[in-house]
Amino acid sequence: MTGKGGTGKTTVAAALALALAQGGRRTLLVEVEGRQGIAQLFETEPLPYEERKIAVSHGSGEVYALAIDAERALLDYLQMFYKLGSAGRALKRLGAIDFATTIAPGLRDVLLTGKACEAVRRTDKQQRPVYDAVVMDAPPTGRIARFLGVNEEVAGLAKVGPVHNQAQGVMRLLKSPDTAVHLVTLLEEMPVQETVDGIAELRAAGLPATSVLVNMVRPRLAGAEQMRTAQGRTEELARAFARAGLGDEHRAGAAESLVAPLLEQGREHAERVELERGLRAELSAQGLPVRELGLLSQGVELAGLYGLARTLHSQWRTTGTDGRHS
Results as ranks from 00 to 15, higher is better:
Leu16Trp: 15
Gly8Leu: 12
Glu256Tyr: 04
Val135Gln: 01
Leu296Arg: 09
Met171Ser: 10
Gln298Ile: 05
Lys9Pro: 07
Gly247Ile: 05
Gly106Ala: 03
Arg128Gln: 09
Glu268Ala: 15
Ser284Pro: 06
Gly95Gln: 02
Ile54Ser: 04
Arg317Trp: 06
Pro208Phe: 06
Leu186Trp: 11
Gly106Trp: 06
Phe81His: 04
Met190Phe: 14
Ala281Ser: 14
Thr101Pro: 05
Arg35Gly: 04
Arg203Cys: 05
Arg146Ser: 03
Glu188Lys: 08
Gly223Asp: 09
Leu16Phe: 15
Glu152Leu: 09
Gly3Ile: 13
Glu301Pro: 02
Ile144His: 07
Pro208Tyr: 12
Ala13Leu: 12
Gly278Ala: 06
Thr321Ile: 13
Gly294Tyr: 08
Val214Tyr: 10
Leu183Gly: 10
Thr123Asn: 06
Val196Leu: 07
Phe147Tyr: 14
Met190Val: 15
Val56Phe: 12
Asp76Thr: 00
Val120Gly: 02
Arg267Met: 13
Met227Trp: 15
Thr311Trp: 01
Gly278Ser: 08
Glu71Ile: 03
Gln231Ile: 06
Glu189His: 07
Lys159Val: 07
Ala96Thr: 09
Ala242Arg: 02
Leu74Gln: 02
Leu174Gly: 03
Glu276Ile: 07
Leu28Arg: 00
Tyr131Ala: 05
Leu288Gln: 00
Gln168Met: 12
Gly206Asp: 07
Ile103Val: 15
Pro289Tyr: 03
Ser176Phe: 09
Val170His: 10
Ser257Gln: 13
Arg228Asp: 11
Ala252Asp: 10
Ala205Gln: 07
Thr7Tyr: 09
Gly304Arg: 06
Arg228His: 14
Leu66Asn: 00
Val290Tyr: 09
Arg243Glu: 10
Ser326Leu: 14
Tyr131Val: 02
Ser314Asp: 14
Gly304Pro: 09
Gly5Ala: 15
Lys53Ile: 07
Ala104Asp: 12
Gly161Met: 01
Lys175Asn: 05
Lys115Cys: 03
Pro46Gln: 05
Ala254Glu: 12
Asp322Leu: 09
Phe241Ser: 05
Ala90Trp: 02
Leu66Val: 04
Ala15Phe: 05
Ile144Lys: 07
Ala242Trp: 05
Glu62Ile: 10
Arg243Phe: 07
Val212Ile: 13
Val300Trp: 14
Asn165Cys: 14
Ile54Arg: 01
Asp69Leu: 08
Asp132Tyr: 07
Gly304Phe: 08
Ala260Met: 15
Glu33Trp: 00
Gln193Arg: 13
Thr319Ile: 10
Arg243Thr: 03
Gly59Ile: 11
Val154Glu: 01
Arg220Gln: 08
Gly88Asp: 00
Ala303Asp: 10
Leu213Asn: 05
Glu62His: 04
Ala100Ser: 04
Arg26Cys: 11
Val130Ser: 04
Val259Asn: 00
Gln79Gly: 00
Glu274Ala: 15
Glu282Leu: 13
Phe81Val: 00
Lys125Phe: 13
Cys117Ile: 08
Thr7Ala: 11
Phe241Tyr: 08
Gly59Tyr: 11
Arg72Gln: 08
Glu152Cys: 05
Asp322Glu: 12
Glu189Asn: 05
Ala87Lys: 06
Ala204Arg: 09
Pro129His: 03
Arg108Ser: 00
Glu51Val: 11
Val160Gly: 08
Leu312Gly: 03
Gly287Ile: 04
Gly323Glu: 04
Thr102Gln: 12
Phe81Asn: 01
Leu207Gly: 02
Glu256Trp: 02
Pro191Asn: 14
Thr10Gln: 13
Pro191His: 12
Asp109Asn: 11
Leu302Gly: 06
Gln298Leu: 08
Glu71Asp: 00
Leu263Trp: 09
